[in-house]
Design a binder for these strands. Sequence first.
DNA 1: TTGGCTTAGTTAAACGTTTAACCTAAAAAC
DNA 2: GTTTTTAGGTTAAACGTTTAACTAAGCCAA
Lengths: 340, 340
Amino acid sequence: MSPTIKDVAKRAGVSIATVSLVIQNHARITTATKTKVQKAIKELNYHPSRSAKGLATKTTGNIGFILTDDHFLQTEPFYTKIFLGTELGTRGTNYYVLLATIARDFNSKDDLPRFILERSVDGIIVAGKATQDFIERIEKLDIPIVFIDYYPTTGNFFTVLIDNTNGGYVATKHLIDLGHKEIGFIGGDIPHPSIYDRFAGYKQALESNGIKFNKKNCIVDEDDPSRPNGYNAAKKILTQNKKITAIFACNDAMAIGVMQYCTDNGIKIPNDISLIGFDDVEADILLNPPLTTIKVPKFELGTEAIHLIENVIRDKSYNNKKKILVPIELIIRNSTKELK
Amino acid sequence: MSPTIKDVAKRAGVSIATVSLVIQNHARITTATKTKVQKAIKELNYHPSRSAKGLATKTTGNIGFILTDDHFLQTEPFYTKIFLGTELGTRGTNYYVLLATIARDFNSKDDLPRFILERSVDGIIVAGKATQDFIERIEKLDIPIVFIDYYPTTGNFFTVLIDNTNGGYVATKHLIDLGHKEIGFIGGDIPHPSIYDRFAGYKQALESNGIKFNKKNCIVDEDDPSRPNGYNAAKKILTQNKKITAIFACNDAMAIGVMQYCTDNGIKIPNDISLIGFDDVEADILLNPPLTTIKVPKFELGTEAIHLIENVIRDKSYNNKKKILVPIELIIRNSTKELK
DNA sequence: TTGGCTTAGTTAAACGTTTAACCTAAAAAC
DNA sequence: GTTTTTAGGTTAAACGTTTAACTAAGCCAA
């Protein structure tokens, strides 16, 4: 069996309290005893047991990461990348991240993730949209919560967000700069704040560049922002308004759908239509042509969330920087082109 | 604060031991007291604390998943998918998976992952290649270990493996069935058992179909099986032997590199060269043409590993099925074609 | 009636830490 | 020279479970 604090105490000739204080680098201890104890620790290769420490301090060293099922399994590894980003964020800290998924339609009949019930996390990160029922139930739990890429409208929560509005603006502005005027917007799940904000950025860009917003250039009634829905939306928008020369898809999945529709129908990108996406997923670079897009730093969303929740855990009354906005970046590849 | 076992005991009018026994569904308890206690549990919304349980039983409910840094960060999310598969595997169990990465060249100067030192895992899953030093150190730890997609040659470990030999065979046989005779093999990191076995399958297929193995058709000196190395290998192999009509790349990353080389040099796939990969990564379907490949069920590797390690944890002397072979599947897309 | 067995529950120790409260000796203050 | 303060530790309780050992009551057989 691994050595315990008792073994160390015995070997160093001190009490177990002293060993504990040495480990915590407490001021009460003289350098003499400190070195003595540290020597014993090293010789025995002692490491405190997390379980015991957890019971004594009511901390666990874990952070729960919650994701809806559909996000976990979707083709584009968007949220799972964010999750991996949290792993990166925990390096150098004393935390581990526990992953759990909940139903997309989580409701009163559903149980909260086990790690919450068993109190094995010190904080919770919620990535993506979650139901109101879920949010209300974790809210009254008296445990730090950080949201990523979603914010409940019902309160002032800690949140790490993509700068979606700016992203929508930059994407649209890029098309405008290339000379396009009839610019389509394709969205899905428009009530989602992220999509909504991208759409808002689109409108802002048009407006501040003297282009009238035209409802006929927008498809916003699709459900999920997925590839097949992008395909459908492309069909609709391109039959609806033949003058369109550029399309801003609210994410890369939909953009890929648009691209497939164009390929199937002999529409050349970027010669006939310029296309820009949003997210910058792995696949983009392999597309033909490679997709111009707005890069979302997915790992960074995860690491920022960890840093934020660490602060909140450390200081329960932490109150500055409740919202962190992660900047986006325009990635110009070959799916957009100057309008002749 | 959440209720403890004491609160339940008081409300049900029994001792805390009885509550504990009820939770464990122990035979000692009559149905009468059982329902009485269960009622109290429900009313208080009691859930046992994992920390306390952990200290008392010396179990943690966690399984450690260890990955080398380079695998964690590589473009193809192969190992991270396996990791996500373990998450799937833990559903319905009482485990969580803790993820840690180690250096690719882990050696005596490096510390073991913190979750091992702090005893916060009940078992360890090691995915992919790890250094001998690392393996030797965890081996003497007296904690269940399961390897995925790698097996140390120095002992009889629990392992979940891809059926690589068969995969290499099936891939090569597919090309042979299409009429190809001059079939190239492109490999990287050939000492890796997985790659080695795919190569072995390639040779077997040639042999049992009356085609002489030709060293000149093989590039096996690349380091990593990565895209750039695939690109280089394609250059080498196609200048080395002009008669080659088909290539089996040891994984999709290298196949993508091959494809890029062909695109850059006006070689048409599949008209000039048939190409088959291995792994079935997301990108395959977006390639032009979509890549024929051998599908590796990545999630399944993870879930199988969880099932296996659960058995080993439950029964320390568990000894059947030390090696689990996960079957592969030929996925025919458009990068392979009958030889005219 | 006695003794033994069974059943169903209780008692109390144990798990390995942290930390508030306590102690003692030496230093400082008067 | 006595009292007070400080420094540097120690003691022991607490955290919330599990479980081996114990107990009391009921039953049965002889």
